[in-house]
Amino acid sequence: MNIFRLAGDMTHLMSVLVLLLKIHTIKSCAGISLKTQELYALVFATRYLDIFTDFISVYNTIMKLIFLGSSFSIVWYMRRHKLVRRSYDKEQDTFRHFFLVLPCLLLALVMNEKFTFKEVMWAFSLYLEAVAILPQLVLLQRTKNIDNLTGQYVFLLGAYRAFYIFNWIYRYFTEPHYVHWITWISGLVQTLLYADFFYYYFNSWKNNVKLHLPA
């Protein structure tokens, strides 16, 4: 464990807590893409298949349970909770996330570290996580005024993977044989997808104006 990875995990945890806070306290999911939340639930489900077979550490297991539990409960809230689901913007959240899942699955079947079920699922979860934010970014561009919690949620979600990139650089130089091209390239693509969001988020913070993404 290094400081970059810990910072990344804590930032990721905060993004989830901000979203749960928003949904649980003000019973609203306005501006949140259900498609992205479903993709994230799938990402964790396919990435943490080994949660009960490969014990890494208590920390690792607890964090996996938190991410699995929170992502599925957010999907449940947005689909089932009578108050929350009313604030879900069904008409605007129209990204066909199936067209993200299929290419990631095909790519994982071709590009993986080892052609086993677990490794293919691992690669699939990395490719899918890289593009999972797209429905949310599209929804943000359609949503006229983005509320602070939603902006903070997306910002933290992007920042966590940026910390992971520093973690991979650190581990590459400190651990022999630590090479995971699939993870590195997926993580880099994922962070780059946030680039323009970061740009507008930083500007709105600097000029102290409401965050607004150009259509």
């Binding site: 890494i56 690792n60 993870t183």
Partner: peptide, 10 residues
């Protein structure tokens, strides 16, 4: 053979 290192990151 080297035990395949389980993926230790989240």
């Amino acid at each position: 053979d080297q035990e395949r290192a389980a993926h230790d990151e989240l």
